[in-house]
Amino acid sequence: MSRYVIKRILMMIVILWCAGFVVFTLTYLTPGDPAMLQLGQEATAEVIAQRRAYLGIDQPYLVQLGRFMVNTFLRFDFGKSWVTNTNTMAELLLRLPRTLIIGLGSMIINVFIGTILGIIAGTHEGKWQDSLVMIIAMVFVSAPDFFVALLLILLFALKLGWLPPYGIETMAGYVLPIISASLGGVAINARQARSAMLEVIRADFVTTARAKGQNEKIVVRKHMLPNAMMPIITGVGGGLSMVVAGTPIIESVFSIPGVGNYLLSGVNQHDYPVIWACVIFFALFSSIAILLTDLCYAFLDPRIKAQYSAGKRKKVK
């Protein structure tokens, strides 16, 4: 098993290299001159050339690429932002906790609520609970999150005055962003959980368990749920890798200085170091999330654990 983990970590490093290479090349190929964009319409050619030299973008592609790869992967230094002169890595780390709070918070909520709703819907298939849950989920997923965000601000900040309309001065400032960001995910998780439950409900081993005289609640808990977990965990894994990347709109509405905002401003201003840093960081986070998910599978399902340990493609019987 530990061999498996090591192998995966090595693969992760390779993936990050590839991500770095791709994002660097893409920004290199993007039309438009960052120096010209930053200095404005009135800058003379001379000044622009000077700025390009300062930014290092007048060098040939391979030189730039080499410098980028060395800096990023050997020194963990993404360089200074071309627009703000601050160290990109430092800024990224500073903003990370805020995005994580919103991302993880909303993911936990929507996994929790979504899964519970899905289990209720699945165990009462065809009855009113099922329809009600699915309607709720559909409404949540249809409402765009910034719209919901604004409604929540009006209700809780203006009308009731319980929560601040923006900003992160206090932890209370995170409540509305987390709620707004989580709603869409509820529907997805509910659907997953529901179909997972439906599949499991029809399973033979559930009938076996009932035939043993086990009471229904324990059948659900000990037999159905563990087996239904797999698709649910897949959904969680997917959600987890989106946690860091998924919140720019919410951050914008609530003025939260997080990673999403950072990437957005980087893209708008052609601030390539910011883009590189954010993208590679997202790749890192996603890879870790996926690795954790896969390890979770192994933990839950002995068949998969055997597969990993064997290291070969062993078909699960």
């Binding site: 604004l150 601000i153 005055g161």
Partner: peptide, 16 residues
């Protein structure tokens, strides 16, 4: 920093 104009309006109304 409040990038969204309607949030700023709410900020004015709530005294923030």
């Amino acid at each position: 920093v409040v990038t969204e104009a309607s949030t700023a309006v709410v900020g004015l109304e709530t005294g923030k």
